[in-house]
């Protein structure tokens, strides 16, 4: 699944980034690399953007950014 589909409060691990160029770089600089743990923290009222906890920092992503991030949800 992709990160935009991760329910609020859930955790996942990044498996791949399906995006190129500067936008890919930007995500990597935010700490989103294969293997990174992500936690969906808060969603704004319209569901976009969403705040995620990544490597100890809160990062806000727009839906189209989150859609490029493939994740494996953490089994619960």
């Amino acid at each position: 699944m992709t990160l935009d589909e991760l329910p609020r409060g859930d955790r996942a691990v990044v498996t791949a980034l399906d995006i190129r160029g500067g936008a890919r770089r930007r995500l990597m600089d935010l700490g989103l690399l294969p293997g990174s743990a992500v936690h969906a923290e808060m969603t704004s009222p319209l569901g976009d953007p969403t705040a995620y906890e990544i490597r100890g920092a809160l990062v806000v992503l727009r839906r189209e950014q989150a859609r490029a991030v493939h994740v494996e949800p953490e089994g619960r």
Binding site: G31, I54, R55, G56, A57
Partner: peptide, 9 residues
């Protein structure tokens, strides 16, 4: 020091 992982890149 409280967010080292975020700072190391």
């Amino acid at each position: 020091a409280t967010r080292l992982e975020r700072n190391l890149p």
